[in-house]
Each structure stands twice: as C-alpha cells, then as structure tokens.
Design a protein around this nucleic acid. Structure first.
Lengths: 343, 343
DNA sequence: CATAACTGTCGAACCGGTTCGACGATAACG
DNA sequence: CGTTATCGTCGAACCGGTTCGACAGTTATG
C-alpha cells in the first residue's frame, strides 16, 4: 500500500511538499501540484486513517450508542440509526455503532481512546449513567431524547408534552369527553423512559383543564398480552369514545382488535397514535398519528454535533435543547363521537 | 489526556518498559509492573487508538456494510446488525456501520485507509460490485448472503434451496397437491437478490418431482398492494390448499386477509412462512415458519472473519461457503387439506 | 539599489504508541 | 572462577501522516 513517502518520491518532491500539494494548505506551484496528484493517482494513494488521526487528532468518525432492550420495539430503532449514519456520511464522517449493554463502559472506551470525534447517544434515560462520562469527555456529544439533566449537552427530542396536549385537544374539539391513553409498558418507565410520562402527564393535565375524562394506563410490548389489554380496556370503559396510543405494539395490534369487536374507526371509536411515518407504512396502520420523525431527530443531532466538532467557536456556544413540534398526520381515524356527550 | 510517556514518568521507568509492563510481552519485575499499573490507573491512562493502529496495523474495528432499499423490509435488517455488533464486541472489536448507497466506494474508503481489520458485507447481490474490491483488499471479508461468485471470500447464508424443498415436502406429506408461493417483489430479484429464486426454483423443481401444482408469483413490499395481491391469488386459485410465503410484508398482511375472507388456518388453508423468530414475535404471526436466523448468520460471519484477522494460519485456509439448514418452527398452521385431493 | 514581502520547497519535529537490539546485573554452568 | 544464559530495563527507530520554521529565489516597495 502506497504511503505519502512513495507519492513524494514518485513526484520527485519532499514528503511535506506532497502533503501540502494534496491538502492545499500552502501555495504550491501548479506544475508540482499536478505531478503530485498524478503520482497519488498512479499509486492509488489513500492516507492511512490511523496516522492521520494521530497527527491531526481527528478521526472523522462519530460514535453512536444505541441500546436494545428486549421489551422495546427494535424495528423503530433502525430509523434513528439511518438518520444518523446518512447525515454523518453527508458531512464526511463514518459511524461507529455501539450496542453494548454496558453503555457507560463502552462510551468511556471510545472517547478515552480517541476513536471518535463526537458521540450521539440514543435511548436516553431520566438518570442516564452515560451522561457524566460524556460531559467529562474531551469530545462533544449530542442526545436524541431528553434526560433529567440536560446541562453540558445538546439535546434533541420530540415535544412529547405538546404531543400529549395536542392529542387531547384534537379529540376534545371534536366533542369527545372520555378518552383512553395507552402508554408504553411500565418497565420502560422504570428504566427511565421519561418520554412516556412526559406525554401522559401533559395529556392528563390538559384533560383536567378541559373537563375531559382520561384513563391513562400502561400497555404491554408484545402480543398476545397487548391485544388482551386493549380488549380489557374497551370492556372496562364502554363509554370512552377516543383512544390515544403511545405504544407501537398496541398500535400494531389495534386493527385486529377493533375488527374482532366489530368496532368501526372512526364511527365507533376515534384513534390517534404516536409513531413514525415509516412505522405506519410498514404496518399499514390506518390511524391519524403524531409523527415522531426519528430520522429528522438523528439528522439534527448529527448536524449540531459536527458543528461543534469542527469549529472551536461553535464548541463554546451555549448548549441547546431543541424540541421538534409534533405534527399530526391525518388518516381520517377521528370524528365526532356517535353519541353526543351528555353525561 | 495521559499518554504512555506520562505513565512511564509517573512510574519512574522508560516508555518501552511501561509498554512492556502493560502488554506483558516481555518479562518485567513484579515491583516495576505494579508501579506501572498503579500509575496507569492513577492517570486513567487509555492508549490512543490511532497511535496503536499506526504502530500495530490493527484497529480492532470491523466494517459492516449494509444497504437499505426503500422496497425492502428495513426492520429485518436490525437483527443482522445486532448479530454482528454483539459478536464483534464479544471478540474485542467495535463495528463501523456503513449504509452508504454507493457501497463499492464506501468499501474502498474504509479498506484503503485501513480504518478496519475486516469487513462483513450484507445484502449480497448476484453480481455484487463490492466483491472485486473486497477480494483485492488487504483485509479479509465475510459475506452474509450468497453471491454468484464466492471465490476468495467466506460466505454464510440460509440454505434457501433446502428451505424451498422443505416447504413443499412438508405440505405434500400432509396431502396437499396445489400450492401457492408468494416471493419477494420482482425488483428485489432484478436487483440481484438471488435468495428469492434459489428458494423458488428449488420449490418448483421439487413440486414437479412430486406431481404437486405450484403457483409461484412475485409479491409486493407494502400495503395495501400486498393485501390486494393475496386476495387476487386466493381468488385465482380457489382449489389451492397451501400457501408458502417468502416475503415479510405478505406474511404480515396475511392475518387480516384470511380474517376478512373468513378463511380458517389451517382448516381451510395451510400456511408456511420464511422469516426470523424475532419477526414472528414482533408481528405476532401465528404461522409455522422456516427460521432465517439473522443473528446467527451475523455471528457466524464475524467469528470466521475474526479468526482470519487474528491468525496468519487461518488467513491461508481455504474459503468456506456455509449454509444454515432451515429449521421449521411449528405453530400449527398446517394440516391435511379439507377436501382430499381427488383431481 | 537596498530592503521588504512573498512564493515555493525542504528538513525536521511531532503525534503516541510498539518493538528491536543492546547492555548491565544476576544466576547457572562446567 | 571464567563463561554463558537469563532477566530486567533502556534508548532508538519506526508506523505514516501533518505542520512549523528556515531558506533560496523572485517580485514589489520606498
């Protein structure tokens, strides 16, 4: 494999001249520049990444820490990952994907060893053991997901509070007065998945303000448990006219449940979900939903991260916490309730 | 950040001694060894990955090239990726995930620059433009998927021929004499997805041998097209008693189709799929299926790759093409056909 | 016309590890 | 007791880039 020394020799110049000719960081005569370029081309020269990293302290690699929990919906993760890898590549970076269970140790490994120029963290927990390590690391970091303490980091997330309020508002405007909210399973919450209660608490608060009854429950993550749960809920609250779903598995299971019960959507039951457009397409879900835009979030995180990586000025800017406003994608699964709410 | 020079100074020894004390590659007195270890601990020393890579020509990183096509089923990919990243980590390697559309260029970039010690390729096409590059690369490579030309590479895949034969045999034994096979969409084939016709041609051949009628058709990749297609097929072949599905989207769509048509499985229709257990669980599919074991394939590829990376002897061993034998996971979705086949 | 500024190139140092050869001290050997 | 291994350590070189300072030659400036 050719080194820059080989290129220099082939072009009849010194190593430093070859380097400058290739990088353009100093003026080099047109004639020499072309000779060096030709030599590099002829020898199929590619700089050695390790050597360059050593000399420049830049690896052009970003770390991506993702965690996979058995009980969470793995396919959804793919969208986030693609948002990150594709955007990173556009900006000239490769992506080191780390899925180790012990995220804190993995983070320490890749930052201390200088394998990466920056890190994106996903599956953020309320109290996330990786955050102190990331704050202390020499590389900048960005989070996809909102932790309890955002200090010292750039944070990107869907505005789950607004999503919760939006769902309730929407159905209230149509005349609904009794709703059910199915959240993620309880262990997601126990693990620190704050987005679950952020949406739920905001929805409950808004419902209270509007005088709407809202039954908020934890869901399950798998069939057949989640199907049974949905049936039990509809049995338990026969007068509820609207269903809010912040749980992928429940959304995927709902069509068969309504079908079996002979419920028509939206005539008998209005439904709003919260998931990604990709997810909706994959499962061909017929419900209006609040788009969680995983690819956009991943892309935003990477762009901000790269800004900080590449500019000392950007590195000293104040940290941002940026929420994507929820957008309701209408699929016609909501309508005024059949029986006017006289209660 | 502490370097090995800092550790050496702190321990009062030379840099080389510190290096030997940490690596154990030369005998070092117990006393000095402990001093060095203590110094390293105190300074939170972690070797610089770039410097180590430069000195040893080993990065302890594997490349993983995956391609995402709009019309393929993205969630399934996640399983392969996890199989690779988890196994790599167990063996001491991190994973560089590359999802670039131009896979050949990406492959050249990461191999020429020596960012990785080896490469795993996924989504292998019959004529795959990445293969010549991988063969010429200085790093070893492993494929998950069978290309037209396997020379010079280790290849791992499900035995799709055997899977096709197994499906036909199974239903033939139960007494079925007319079957339908739904494959992936035609453009997957056009793109070089050989596994589609490997399964189909083997199934057709076996059906011919057994005197079974087999209607083999391309499927669609999305709803509602795939649902319409299933309905059209069942309309067109009312006497068919068994359905073989080599198409994730079709498998996911089938329950609602049978439900709407009032078909009972297996009483009115026997069904066998080909997908992963994880997929079956996610969509809670009630069908017997041939397990495609993506995580196992990813793990096998990585293990072989690492063997070649780490041992010169292994590097000169002959290349392997290894097929996982299909395993039928029974979910009770097949039974003898209702009307005995008198035709 | 002397001086300053600029242009284009080179040599040397550096990034942070690993590894080879040498060397003094100690132990084993005949 | 002299010779040879062995042990433990050090200095130096190397991996393959980048970058700083110097310098010769040319052009602009006062």
């Amino acid at each position: 494999m050719a080194t820059i020394g080989d290129v220099a020799r082939e072009a009849g110049v010194s190593r430093s001249t070859a380097s400058y000719a290739l990088s353009g960081k100093r003026p080099i005569s047109e004639e020499v520049r072309l000779r060096v370029l030709a030599a590099a081309e002829a020898l199929a020269y590619t700089p050695n990444a390790g050597a360059r990293a050593l000399a420049t302290s830049q690896t052009k690699v970003l770390g991506l820490l993702a965690q996979f929990h058995e009980d969470e919906f793995a396919p959804a993760m793919m969208q986030y990952i693609l948002g990150v890898t594709d955007t990173a590549r556009d900006l000239g970076y490769d992506t080191l994907l780390v899925t180790e269970a012990d995220g804190a140790r993995a983070l320490r490994r890749i930052t201390d060893s200088r394998m990466v120029d920056g890190v994106v963290l996903m599956n953020i927990a309320q109290e996330d053991s990786r955050l102190p390590i990331l704050r202390a690391a020499p590389q900048p970091g960005a989070l996809v997901g909102l932790p309890g303490d955002c200090s010292g980091l750039d944070v990107f997330d869907l505005d789950f509070e607004e999503a919760g309020r939006g769902m309730v508002d929407h159905l209230h405007r149509l005349g609904h007065r009794e709703l059910i909210l199915v959240s993620q399973p309880e262990h997601v919450v126990e693990r620190g998945g704050a987005y679950v209660w952020r949406l739920r608490d905001a929805a409950l608060e808004r419902a209270r303000q509007l005088g709407v009854t809202l039954h908020a429950v934890y869901g399950a993550s798998r069939q057949p448990a989640v199907g049974r749960l949905l049936n039990a809920l509809l049995d338990a609250h026969p007068s509820a006219t609207g269903l809010l779903i912040n749980n992928e598995a429940a959304a995927a299971a709902l069509p068969s449940v309504t079908y079996e019960r002979g419920l028509r959507v939206p005539e008998d039951l209005s439904v709003i979900g919260r998931y990604s457009a990709e997810f909706a397409a994959t499962f061909s879900l017929p419900y209006s939903f609040i788009e969680s835009a995983p690819d956009r979030l991943g892309a935003m995180a990477v762009r901000q991260l790269v800004r900080r990586v590449e500019s000392a000025a950007a590195r000293s800017e104040p940290f941002v916490v940026r929420f994507i406003s929820p957008e309701l994608v209408s699929r016609g699964s909501t309508a005024p309730p059949k029986a006017p709410p006289v209660r």
